[in-house]
Design a binder for these strands. Structure first.
Lengths: 65, 65
DNA sequence: GGGTAAAGTAAAGTAAGTTTTACGTAAAGG
DNA sequence: CCTTTACGTAAAACTTACTTTACTTTACCC
């Protein structure tokens, strides 16, 4: 499942470490997420949408990939 | 995390078995989901929104519980 | 009462998300 | 050069989503 986490993160000038910390997850989780290595839990998806001020549907595209 | 899966399901006259089958998961998964025993994967959340023709944010409330 | 459909519980097992630790690389600055 | 910052990889350990199987309960209907 494709996602736009990296785009949103760098648009805001955040490092992977920053994002991991504000989300309360490890940096490894961010790296793997951005690389599309797995699909996050719904809870993490909601946190991401919260941080970026958008909806889950704006961050993830279930159609692609 | 609170959800409105049971409401949406029974509004449509579906049984837990029906929903499980159309989602491609086990009935146990539906039971546990409706009981709020765990948070689903994002992929399952997208499938649910697809079946019910709504957005994830309409099915799950990350604030409550 | 017996039969069946829908929902529930419980436990053990498998699959996948997430963490932790440790090391590698490339770019930027002093 | 050397250090620091940001990003990457890899593997083992842990946690939790999800499956499978088997059995229970409730209600409705004949």
């Amino acid at each position: 499942m494709k996602n736009y986490i990296r785009d949103n993160r760098s648009e805001r000038g955040m490092t992977q470490d920053d994002l991991a910390e504000v989300l309360g997850v490890s940096r490894q989780t961010i790296i793997s997420l951005e690389k599309g290595r797995y699909n996050p839990s719904l809870e993490l998806a909601f946190k991401l949408a919260g941080v970026f001020g958008c909806r889950i549907e704006d961050l993830f595209d279930p159609e692609e990939e």
